[in-house]
Nucleic acid binder design. Structure first.
Length: 270
DNA sequence: CTGCGGTCCTGAAGGC
DNA sequence: TGCCTTCAGGACCGCA
């Protein structure tokens, strides 16, 4: 599932392709996945691409934005005019035609969406602190954790608290910090909070460095079709039954908040 | 506040 | 072989 590193990778890759380009046509094959009137963005130019949490924003010359959430299986595929092959027709639901090139929005499960928005601040008001921002301090994290007795992994994945962490990177960060995903977040000592903050930054940086994780059941690929390689560096996510790289314990899978949760009971604890 | 279950959707996997 | 059921999950919603 595209989380912060995957969306950031897409943003960087796509920015170099569509910045300055003009939108000529929007083909909507699945109306429920597109909100807003596409007429309002025809003939506008792409000013810039931004990311908040797991959401991509394409800023347009008429001060509107295309807000894109890829959810579990969304893909944004760029095809320059030169190539004529159309990718994965069956899962393509929206195509944006530019003055040069086309952007395909594919989504196997059709959970993702694109909408036209005007008020960036309003749309992002509820999104929590970005891990790479100055506000992501030990103090902020401690306050967030103190306020809840929910399992720490659920708090990490709460987009209103911390932006961009999903199932993969929250699991990996907790392994890195040697903290069980099941621990009530308000039970973490300040030393652990500090370690967890560093672990979050570490795994996210690595995720971006390896251009995202294209794990076994993931549909994630980059806009030019390449896979990421962070899946080769996963320590716990989807590694149940394997030996822990750190202590040799057996990685366990449990269900938490309805989601698969992976950890090493030996070195991360209960 | 918290947890639970349902919702969207498809393909893979398991049962018989 | 083939049909049927179950499951996975990000975000949101309603309910207890």
């Amino acid at each position: 599932m595209p989380e912060l590193p995957e969306v950031e990778t897409i943003r960087r890759s796509l920015a170099s392709k569509i910045r300055g380009r003009k939108i000529k046509k929007v083909l909507i094959l699945k109306p429920k996945m597109f909100r807003g009137d596409p007429k309002n963005i025809i003939e506008t130019k792409v000013i810039d691409l931004q990311r908040r949490a797991k959401i991509l924003f394409i800023k347009l010359s008429n001060n509107k934005y295309l807000m894109i959430h890829l959810k579990l299986n969304g893909q944004l595929i760029w095809l320059s005019e030169a190539k004529k092959t159309v990718p994965s027709g069956k899962t393509t639901h929206i195509i944006i035609f530019f003055d040069k090139g086309r952007l395909f929005f594919n989504d196997l499960r059709q959970f993702g969406w694109i909408k036209i928005i005007s008020d960036f601040k309003k749309e992002t008001a509820k999104i929590g602190v970005e891990p790479f921002s100055r506000e992501f301090t030990v103090k902020y994290l401690s306050e967030v954790f103190c306020q809840s007795k929910r399992a720490v992994k659920l708090v990490l994945m709460d987009q209103e608290k911390i932006a961009g962490l999903g199932n993969i990177y929250s699991s990996e960060a907790l392994w890195e910090a040697k903290i069980s995903p099941l621990r009530p977040s308000n039970s973490l000592e300040s030393k652990e909070v500090k370690k967890l903050r560093e672990a979050i930054l570490k795994v996210l940086k690595e995720g971006i460095e390896y251009k995202g994780a294209s794990a076994a059941d993931q549909a994630y690929i980059q806009p030019l079709g390449e896979k990421g390689s962070y899946q080769e560096h996963l320590r716990v996510y989807q590694q149940d039954g394997e030996k822990c790289a750190r202590c040799g314990g057996i990685i366990k899978r449990v269900k938490l908040g309805g989601r698969g949760t992976f950890y090493c009971p030996k070195c991360q604890g209960g």
